[in-house]
């Protein structure tokens, strides 16, 4: 019965340095690979270790650590920043699923801190207060992957060009209103289809119009979808919302305030996870959706003071 050297009583190998191979850390394949493993899953916003535990037990494929859930950021106002490292460490110690955390748009120092903390993926997020009017983070400089929000194909491909390994719709976080997420998912889909109808000359102009690298646009059009994993986010509150977005072709979903601002987070979390697997089966969706208690109180997107989805580099 051979025992391998370097693995000590179930402790992670990186604590010893002798066995980790020296090549290929943090390559784009490895970064986008993590996103691929999250497919068909739900990433849940959590603010502390207890919520993270509930999310993991419900079957979340990852948790997103943040200071306050989006609904509270809307309510309380003020500057929203990266979470306290202590909270993030507690969450990392509590769950075995990947831990993601949010950094402000353009705030590469927050992202560096998150990387040092061992976070598995950074969300450069419009939910937090913007830190740079003009620039997004150069995500290629990092060993860990980034997920970024997008409202349309131009935004999505620009983020990919900057090194994002995963895209999500922006939607309108903290509203419990799915309308903006639907709009963004449909816009991206429609723009890709539009590109498919074009010949090469037209694609050059389209790349200029979208302000994206030509090669990336060609690849996207060839594949008929974004070239990396694409999730829905921003306002999903019910299993039916999940099914709607999955049927519009996204690979999985983020759920923010929708779970821990509802009356029965445990039950709703389980239901959201089931929905992402069984979204095509309407009969099953009916069972899943039954008796979940009150969903989060929603906001109409016309009534909100600030549309977060508009946060973007001014040069975009």
């Amino acid at each position: 019965m051979p025992i391998l050297p370097g693995v000590k009583d179930g402790k992670p190998l990186n604590e010893g340095q002798d066995t980790v191979p020296s090549i290929g850390f943090g390559t784009f394949t490895v970064k986008s690979g993590l996103a691929q493993m999250a497919k068909g899953g739900v990433v849940m916003d959590v603010t502390n270790a207890e919520q993270a535990r509930i999310a993991e037990q419900a079957g979340a494929c990852a948790v997103m650590a943040l200071e306050r859930v989006p609904a509270d950021i809307r309510k309380d106002g003020g500057v929203a920043r990266m979470s306290d490292p202590k909270k993030i460490k507690e969450i990392c110690e509590t769950v075995s699923i990947p831990v993601m955390a949010k950094a402000r748009i353009g705030h590469f120092a927050e992202a560096q801190i998150l990387e040092a903390l061992g976070v598995d993926m950074v969300d450069e997020s419009e939910v937090l207060t913007q830190a740079d009017y003009e620039n997004h983070i150069d995500k290629r400089q990092f060993k860990i992957p980034f997920v970024c929000g997008a409202r349309n194909l131009g935004e999505a491909l620009r983020r990919i060009a900057e090194g994002a390994a995963m895209i999500r719709t922006k939607g309108e976080a903290g509203t419990g209103n799915v309308v903006e997420a639907v709009k963004h998912a449909r816009t991206i889909k429609r723009q890709i289809n539009f590109g498919k109808s074009m010949d090469e000359e037209e694609l050059y102009s389209y790349a200029k119009e979208l302000q994206v690298p030509y090669d990336l646009l060609v690849k996207t059009v060839e594949m008929g979808r974004l070239p990396i994993v694409n999730f829905a986010a921003g306002g999903l509150a019910t299993p039916a919302d999940v099914s709607l977005l999955m049927q519009l072709g996204v690979d999985g979903v983020f759920v923010g305030s929708g779970i821990f601002k509802s009356s029965n987070p445990e039950k709703r979390a389980v239901a959201m996870v089931q929905a992402v697997t069984h979204y095509k089966d309407a009969k099953k969706m009916a069972e899943i959706s039954e008796d979940l208690g009150e969903p989060m109180v929603g906001l109409n997107c016309d009534d909100i003071g600030e549309k977060w989805s508009l946060k973007e580099s001014s040069r975009d």
Binding site: V7, G10, P21, I23, G24, T29, V30, G118, D120
Partner: peptide, 16 residues
């Protein structure tokens, strides 16, 4: 088997 044996995502890798 040992879960997450090589560490977190920053320790994920490609090798021959």
């Amino acid at each position: 088997t040992v879960r997450n044996s090589y560490g977190r995502q920053k320790d994920s890798f490609e090798a021959k």
